[in-house]
Design a binder for these strands. Structure first.
Lengths: 205, 205, 205, 205
DNA sequence: AATGAATGAGCCTTCATTCAT
DNA sequence: GATGAATGAAGGCTCATTCAT
């Protein structure tokens, strides 16, 4: 899994391997049983370590959730950067946002599912401010990209706080429905429709 | 609060009044502390009744959550019906969907906040199938309205499972952001932008 | 046991009976194993109730310790009052202090043993300030009694903070030694010697 | 700190230096948080060594407590010997006991505080018998000194087990109060009053 | 000798639920 | 119907101790 490998790249070796194992086990447990119903015991059994060791590495259940959450955020952000780097015109940028979102969710459905359920928990916890700061920074970054000369003209003058909802709203809504089984078809099937809808919502035309 | 008064209309009298009190207390507790961290004890204290009494009326904590959730669903559905009844053309229907959504969330922010956090819980619980059925029925109802002769033509041929996301996605995304404090301006301020974006996303034009 | 019956006198009935049972079990466990090594489980087994019930009545292990501690304080204070009420002259007052101390420790050795080991814990806990206030009040009360006209003359001019140590020090030291098995003879055997030593230490003669 | 330097005198060099560091860190942690709440981890952080190293030198937490305790005992005993060596008459001996006690507590308040809280722990542990034996030997030694010809006559015929309480009781009681903040003035301020009280308590006059 | 990751038994506490009154 | 004391299973977390390196 590309996402959690990030960890390994930064801190290779046995220790990172263990942390990776714990994170993967936690991910599967959290998605299977939910955040609250998952016990440290379950995670311990799944990755064959000790309770104490999990606490040694993550401090608390909350800390484990936060670590996994930021791991997902980072991975998702990397994909966006890659897509955005290949885009030039405004519409390509909007597509990059939608495509990277859809592609990441379909590539990492487990992480995506986890992200949806963990956001509220992390936001309320001690890392809440860090999360909020990262969100603001990401939004600023995107809005700046879209308002570069040569792109700005193609886009409606819309409030900055509204823009992300117009672009990513439909994709997110569909992805949520897909991850919870309310719809069948993969979001990937509707990549273009979702990107087009986003473009129509914000384009100056 | 118009929403929970629904209950009272159906079962007037002291008993309904008590149920209403319990539901209101539960709502405020669930939103303040989250579903899992809210204890029956907290709710009891807030509405000044007894633990046993809450169980007498709702059977279990899960039952209380479900009752509150369906209460919100019903209220939201009523507003949609009212708006849809006043619409004729396709674009008016799309606006009715967006407006009723935005207006309900801003009129009942507490219920809306609760609905977001409780959906997963109810979906996994014993009422999960009922919830799924209601969702399917609602979507069918909306799609049918939009595909009546004289409306169908104005709308792109799009998969039924994708349509709701295109229409409500941006509004929902913005409302979530508003309820969790990530944006400042009330969704009501952007009603028209959100409705227009929805219309552009699905209109045949 | 006279001490804990105080509770029963104030709140008669089943509930008080239960609290009494829990306190008695706790006392025996704390003395047998020490404060930290005693588990709520042990206490539960000994008084045949449930873990939850102990928490229902005392809130926490710390709360149980504090309740027991103040129970002992109160009982000890009552005996002192009774003895002091029967004294007239200064020397009789000093004897009342020493005798009531010795008699209480020998009548309630378990409570006394507990008191010695729990004082530090209570002093550091949330009830610490209350304990300090009670101690100050008690000392003030005793010093006032001893400085009434007709008594003051028989006693050396000594700092108020030193007086209690001179009077009760030897008795306390011997009682500690007795409770921990370092000496064999009951403090009661040396009542008079201890009272006389106290009197010599403070008397003007 | 004179006390712990004893160790260094016996085993000079790096190793002793490390043991000394660990003991000092342990002392400060035990006094700040209490015996049970102090973790090996805390001590490790304070003296900047490793968990394993502490175990290498002291075997167990209990062993560390005992080592520190006996360290304090030994230091206190040395001061007593020095004071006693300078005394000739009975009253001088009693004063030596009180002065050496008061002077040691005020010179090493941290060690004294620790001694009070650790005594019960050591007495119950594997070194309990050794502690009891040392206590008995010390008492025998003191009583023997006081009953040498030329001294015996000045002192009341009192039970051997009562004597130490009469002499040291007031001083100990005041020192405890001082160490726990219940009184303000240093015990040193009342050295003479305490010594005089002790002498009056036991003198034949 | 020194290190610190790993272990796992065990504890305090919580809280949904029951039921006698 | 209403009450709230009582239950007890279960979970998060701690921490003394070990041991491979």
């Amino acid at each position: 899994m590309a996402t959690i490998d990030v960890l390994e790249r930064n801190h290779p070796g046995k220790r990172a391997q263990l942390k990776r194992d714990i994170l993967l086990s936690a991910l599967s447990c959290f998605n299977e049983h939910g955040l609250e119903l998952t016990t440290i015991e379950m995670i311990k059994v799944q990755c064959d370590t000790s309770v104490g060791n999990i606490y040694h590495h993550f401090g608390s259940k909350e800390g484990l959730i936060a670590a996994l959450f930021f791991c997902a955020q980072q991975d998702q952000a990397q994909l966006l950067e890659a897509y955005l780097a290949a885009a030039t015109q405004a519409q390509e940028g909007v597509s990059a946002l939608v495509y990277s979102y859809v592609d990441w969710v379909t590539a990492e459905p487990e992480l995506a599912r986890f992200q949806f359920q963990a956001r509220a928990s992390v936001a309320k916890g001690p890392q809440g401010e860090e999360l909020a700061a990262r969100n603001r920074a990401r939004n600023r970054h995107i809005l700046k990209w879209l308002s570069e000369p040569g792109r700005k003209a193609g886009i409606q003058k819309l409030p900055g706080e509204l823009m992300p909802s117009l672009i990513i709203g439909p994709a997110e809504n569909y992805c949520r429905a897909w991850l919870s089984g309310r719809v069948q078809a993969s979001p990937k099937k509707y990549r273009e429709e979702l990107a087009l809808a986003a473009w129509r919502a914000v384009s100056a035309g």
